[in-house]
Write a protein that binds this DNA or RNA. Structure first.
Length: 153
DNA sequence: GCCAACGTTGGC
DNA sequence: GCCAACGTTGGC
């Protein structure tokens, strides 16, 4: 089992919205590295849900991979923001996974919280200029963050 | 709204 | 295949 961290702008799609809907296809990722991480994700993998570009950036809870990588439908939709004219059905460029709500944190784990935790000093997300929207997280990092969020994993 | 970091594009 | 220009991300 792998662990992941996925970023979302709450104005676009928030953790609360995931809780309400139950599950959501994670479409619109247009970065090859992030895409490759999604292709490696398996059903049941746990996902740290990160709110970015907002008042209080940080991790708000845990989601779960509920469907493994499949073709991101938005790449074929000319009207979509994520349309990719260079992608064909025979050779699609972009994948997505489906994520499901799993468990909300008791408290937000903010960026300063993450930075203050010695066990997390190697996290990809904390590296300057990191912009990947999907990154792998080690089991130890996952456990430490769940602890900071007030849930036991 | 600024700006640093970084991926992508395209001319050569 | 190099690299400058450009666009995007995301914290502050």
């Amino acid at each position: 089992m792998h662990h992941w961290l996925m970023k979302s702008e709450p104005d676009e799609f928030s953790f609360q919205e995931l809780e309400r809907k139950g599950q959501e296809p994670w479409t619109g990722v247009r970065n090859y590295q992030a895409r490759n991480f999604m292709r490696a994700a398996k059903v049941g993998d746990l996902v740290l849900f990160y709110h970015s570009n907002c008042e209080e950036p940080g991790i708000v809870g845990v989601a779960r991979i509920s469907k493994e990588a499949f073709d991101d439908p938005t790449q074929f939709e000319p009207k979509s923001d994520y349309y990719d004219a260079k992608s064909t059905k025979d050779d699609p460029r972009w994948s997505c996974v489906e994520v499901s709500f799993h468990q909300a944190f008791k408290r937000l784990v903010s960026l300063p919280d993450l930075r203050a935790c010695a066990a997390l000093k190697d996290m990809l997300i904390l590296r300057p200029g990191n912009r990947l929207s999907v990154t792998p997280v080690t089991a130890a990092e996952f456990k430490a963050i769940a602890g900071l969020g007030g849930i036991r994993k």
